[in-house]
Amino acid sequence: MKFVQLESRGGNYLVVASNVAYLRVGENGQTLVGIVGSQPLLVTGTPESVAQKLMQG
């Protein structure tokens, strides 16, 4: 299991990279991260930058 830290304006999340289902543009330059079996998370950064973190993590 590979955990990746994603930052948000309200705090940080540790996300299991293999549980990410989709990335979508959110509000105010943020990204919605769809998690399998859960509600999406609103994190800082563009979908491209979040995808890069998930791939590198």
Rank of each mutant, 00 (worst) to 15 (best):
M55D: 07
M55N: 10
K2M: 14
L6Y: 12
S49M: 05
G37C: 01
A51W: 00
V50H: 04
R24L: 07
Q5F: 11
E48F: 10
P40M: 04
L32H: 10
L41N: 00
E48W: 01
L23C: 01
R9I: 15
N28E: 14
V25I: 13
N19S: 15
L42C: 05
G29S: 06
G29D: 08
T31K: 03
A21F: 06
Q56N: 12
N19R: 15
Q56G: 07
K2G: 14
L6T: 12
V33K: 04
Q5D: 11
Y22F: 15
G26D: 05
S8A: 10
I35G: 02
L32G: 02
L6H: 12
L41V: 00
L42Q: 06
P47I: 03
Y22T: 03
Y13F: 11
L41Q: 01
V4Y: 04
G57H: 01
V43K: 09
L42R: 00
M1Y: 11
T44L: 01
G57Q: 03
A21Y: 10
A51I: 02
V15I: 10
V50S: 01
V16L: 15
V43H: 10
G57N: 11
L23N: 01
L54K: 02
V20M: 07
P40F: 00
V50D: 05
Q39M: 09
A17F: 02
V20N: 06
Q30W: 04
N12P: 10
T44V: 05
L23S: 05
N12W: 06
E7R: 13
T44Q: 09
V25F: 09
V36M: 03
K2H: 15
G45N: 04
R9P: 09
N28Y: 11
E7P: 11
G57M: 04
G37N: 10
Q52L: 05
V15K: 00
L23F: 02
A21T: 15
T44K: 10
S49W: 04
G26T: 01
Q30N: 14
E27Q: 13
R9K: 13
Q30K: 10
V25H: 13
N12M: 12
G10K: 12
N28G: 07
V16C: 14
G29T: 08
Y13A: 05
Q5W: 12
N12Y: 03
F3C: 09
V4M: 02
E7V: 09
N28W: 11
Q5R: 14
S18C: 13
G37F: 08
A51P: 00
N19H: 14
L23Q: 07
F3W: 10
T31Y: 07
E48H: 09
T31V: 01
Q5M: 11
S49H: 09
L6E: 08
N12G: 08
G37P: 11
Q52D: 13
A17Y: 02
K53P: 10
S38T: 11
G57S: 07
L42I: 10
T31S: 09
A17P: 07
T44D: 07
V33Q: 01
L23E: 02
I35Q: 00
N12L: 03
K2A: 13
V16S: 14
L32P: 02
G10S: 15
G29I: 04
R24S: 06
Q5A: 14
E48A: 11
